[in-house]
Simulated assay, not measured.
Amino acid sequence: MAKDYMPPSDFLRDLIDEDVEIEADDEATIARLLTLFRDADAANRDWAVFLLGQSEADTKAVRAALVAALDDADDGVRAEALVALAQRDGDLARPHVLEALSAESVYPTLFEAAALCAHPDLIKPLRGWLKATGDKEVDQLVVEAVAACEASAK
């Protein structure tokens, strides 16, 4: 996310400004973030998914909301949801990563999600992205994702 990209939600801005870690047992904050996954404003949805993704919260409700966010109309929200899901359950995220790798363009976080999944069936589609982005930092993410997946094959 761009440094100056802020959500309109006062609640989300307060969480961001206070720079506090969301505790996994903070049910009220997590519930409020999950509600914002369905907000009309894409920036609110994006930040809610991002902030929850940075937390240790991992319940059935959190995973279900992350899976639902994979169908969001906004590319950024989907990308954040995929990384957050891969952090919690690589097997659940893997088919979504595989599908996303077949797109013509992707968010760089897709390669982070692929590395988190670290599964051999991602190697071939990832190799198709090697040096394909033209961005050295993103290309490095692809290299790291391929390495993680190759390591899991051993």
Rank of each mutant, 00 (worst) to 15 (best):
E99W: 11
V20T: 09
L15E: 00
I16E: 02
A69I: 12
G90V: 01
L85D: 11
G90D: 04
A114T: 06
A114E: 07
A132F: 14
A118T: 04
D74N: 14
A86S: 13
T109G: 09
L34I: 03
Y5D: 12
D91P: 00
V97Y: 12
D4F: 00
E112V: 09
D46C: 15
A113V: 07
L141W: 03
S9G: 10
G90H: 02
D25C: 05
I22E: 03
G134F: 03
A2D: 09
A118D: 05
F50T: 11
A48V: 01
F11L: 08
W47M: 09
A24T: 05
V142Y: 11
P120Q: 14
A61Y: 00
D14M: 09
L34A: 00
P95I: 07
C117D: 06
W129F: 05
R88Y: 04
E80F: 04
L101Q: 07
E18A: 08
R88L: 04
E21P: 03
C149R: 04
V142W: 11
P120G: 13
L82V: 15
S9D: 13
T133W: 13
L12V: 09
E23A: 08
D4P: 00
I16T: 05
R127D: 07
R45L: 06
R63W: 04
F111S: 04
L110A: 02
L110Y: 02
A64L: 15
A86N: 12
A114H: 03
V138M: 06
H119C: 14
P108G: 11
T133N: 12
G76Q: 02
L82S: 14
A24E: 12
V138G: 02
A103V: 12
A148C: 07
S152H: 04
L34D: 00
D25E: 09
G53I: 12
V49S: 09
A43T: 10
V77D: 02
I22D: 04
G134L: 02
D17M: 11
E27N: 10
R78M: 09
A84D: 01
D91N: 08
C149P: 06
